[in-house]
Amino acid sequence: MKSQPTYSTEFKIDAANLVIKQGYSTKEACEATGVGPTAIRRWVTQLRQEFDGITPSGNAITPEQQRIQELEAKIKKIEWEKDILKKATALLMQDSIKR
């Protein structure tokens, strides 16, 4: 079974920008980069969405959206920790009331 190649974020942005900013067709971008049309179309769509401020469900490719994903993950972790502390406090309060 053939493994899929891994491309850097910079490569994905450059390849998508061939279509978005330089007017290449998907086919021309494929020929220029050696990447298949499905990947090029996916990167173009994702980059356009990220430029429009839409945070992707997968890994972001623009630095701004990567930072948003990083901050959202931190918020989620902090909220999770806060919930644990609330539950622990409630248990301790119950225990002290029983005494």
Rank of each mutant, 00 (worst) to 15 (best):
I75L: 15
I97Q: 14
K86F: 10
I75A: 09
K82E: 08
W43Q: 02
K74L: 13
W43H: 01
P37A: 12
E72A: 10
A88P: 09
V44A: 01
K76M: 15
R67G: 10
E81I: 05
K27E: 13
K82F: 09
T6S: 05
P56V: 04
K82Y: 09
V19Y: 01
A32K: 00
D14P: 13
E81H: 05
P63S: 05
I68Q: 03
S96M: 11
P56M: 02
L71E: 10
M1D: 07
L92A: 14
P37Y: 08
M93R: 15
E10W: 12
T26Q: 13
W80L: 12
E72Q: 10
G58I: 06
G36R: 05
T26L: 11
K76Y: 11
Q94K: 11
T38A: 10
A29P: 01
F11V: 03
Q4I: 08
G53F: 03
A32S: 01
A15G: 05
K87Y: 14
V19W: 00
I40G: 01
Q4K: 13
A90W: 08
I13D: 01
N59I: 12
A15M: 06
S8Q: 01
R48A: 14
E31C: 05
K77I: 08
I54W: 09
M93I: 09
S3I: 07
Y7S: 00
R99W: 14
K87V: 13
A73K: 04
E31R: 10
I20M: 03
T55V: 13
I68N: 03
Q46F: 05
L47N: 02
V44M: 06
T45L: 12
A39F: 07
I84A: 13
Q66N: 11
G58W: 07
I84Y: 07
W80Y: 12
L18P: 00
V44K: 07
T62L: 04
I40V: 04
K77G: 13
Q4E: 13
I75H: 05
I78E: 13
A60H: 01
Q69W: 06
E81T: 12
I75N: 11
T33M: 04
